[in-house]
Design a protein around this nucleic acid. Structure first.
Lengths: 128, 128
DNA sequence: GTAACTTGTTACCTTTTGGTAACTATAATC
DNA sequence: GATTATAGTTACCAAAAGGTAACAAGTTAC
């Protein structure tokens, strides 16, 4: 039996105990991926940024009912996980631009698959 | 502006307000997919069942530290979303077998992509 | 000097998710 | 009649996630 402790970031730890080392490692990686994109606002934010660099207020307008607290919080998390970068411009008033990193852009295939299966699921379950 | 209300199941509702109908529909489908597989125990359970039909106790042994309450709860949710089926056998003592449905098996590509990106992410972020 | 615009922060509260420990029902075995 | 094995359930609690409303700092325009 193996116990592996990994952390996606400072606030989040995953503990797994499994009999099979390879299987538990794969499970961890899959759950890392899930952890990074889950939550109410992350997909909307990431999708908003796939259309190019955006400022705080622009993302907020895109998503409509997100609060500044949640947007700020989630942007920090995404930056921490290196999916986006934050650029401050010394204009007046100050503007801050967010862009997807290469790692962030590398989510495309996963997001496509998520959409694909989601549509399939809706057809099979939600739609009926 | 369009407001669309959908529900994945009786207990869960997603509300989206967006300016672009197509975009919000895609977002909903993607979030459906996320919703169905997220949570601490769903991936382990689904993965456990990819190795074939299993009984309640067998899944419990596979996952080690899951409680009967959580396993029961999550199995019900997965059944409700039509990813698994529950078969009762009138043996003694009674045995119950869980299997993946075709819809459950259709998750394979998504799970593969999740694993793929998760490994990439670990290499880029967690590993450093 | 007051209002407006930018990007946030803070304190407080509610809802959702997950955990613990004890218990249940049924039947077979000792 | 007590123990074992099956597959759960129940009541209660803790932690995480998300929501609301008010505020803050810096600069420009009126």
């Amino acid at each position: 039996m193996v116990t592996i402790i990994i952390s996606v970031n400072d606030n989040f730890q995953l503990f797994f105990e499994m009999k099979n080392k390879t299987c538990s490692y794969k499970l961890m990686a899959s759950r890392d991926a899930l952890t990074v994109i889950q939550g109410k606002w992350r997909l909307p934010i990431i999708i908003s940024l796939t259309y190019g660099a955006k400022r705080f207020g622009e993302i907020k307008n895109d998503i409509e009912d997100i609060s500044p607290k949640m947007l700020s919080q989630e942007l920090k998390e995404l930056e921490h996980n290196k999916l986006i970068t934050r650029n401050i411009y010394d204009s007046m008033p100050v503007t801050v631009e967010y862009t997807l990193t290469p790692l962030g852009k590398s989510l495309k295939k996963l997001l496509d698959e998520l959409l694909d299966w989601g549509l399939h699921f809706r057809k099979e379950v939600v739609g009926k």
